[in-house]
Computed example of a mutant assay.
Amino acid sequence: MKRGLGVISLLVLSLILLVGCGSEDASGSEESVTVGITQIVEHPSLDAATEGFKKALEDNGYVEGENIEYDEQLAQGDMNNAQTIAKNFAGDEVDMIFANATPSAQAALNATKEIPIVFTSVTDPVGAELVTSFEEPGDNITGTSDTHPDAIPQTINFIVDEIGAKSIGVIYNSGEQNSTVQVDTVKEALEGTDVELVEATVSTSAEVQQAAESLVGRADAIYVPTDNTVVSALEAVLGVAESEQIPVFAGELDSVERGALAGSGFSYEDLGYETGEMAAQILKGDKDPSEIEVSYPKNLKLVINKEAAEKMGVEIKEEWSEKAEFLGE
Rank of each mutant, 00 (worst) to 15 (best):
V224P: 08
A211L: 05
D220M: 06
V208N: 07
Q177C: 07
V183N: 00
V208A: 01
T185P: 00
T193W: 01
S174F: 04
D220W: 03
A211E: 13
Q182N: 12
T193Q: 02
L215R: 01
D194M: 09
V202T: 14
V186Q: 07
T180Q: 10
G192P: 14
A189I: 07
A211V: 07
R218L: 15
Q177D: 15
Q182P: 11
L197F: 10
V198F: 00
E207H: 02
A221H: 13
V202A: 08
N173Q: 06
Q177R: 10
V202P: 00
L197E: 15
D227E: 04
G217D: 15
A189P: 11
S174I: 11
A189Y: 01
E199W: 02
K187D: 07
V202S: 02
V216T: 11
E188N: 14
N178A: 14
L190S: 10
V202N: 02
A200P: 02
Q209K: 12
A212P: 05
K187L: 04
A221I: 14
S205H: 03
Q209C: 00
E199I: 04
V216W: 12
Q210K: 09
T204A: 07
D227Y: 05
P225M: 11
V186C: 07
I171R: 00
T180F: 01
E188C: 03
V186Y: 02
Q210H: 03
T226L: 09
L190G: 06
T185A: 14
I222E: 10
S203A: 12
G175R: 04
Q209D: 11
E207C: 07
Q177V: 12
T226Y: 08
T204R: 05
V202K: 04
S179I: 06
D184W: 00
E207M: 05
T204G: 06
L197R: 08
A211G: 08
A212T: 11
S174V: 13
I171W: 01
E199L: 09
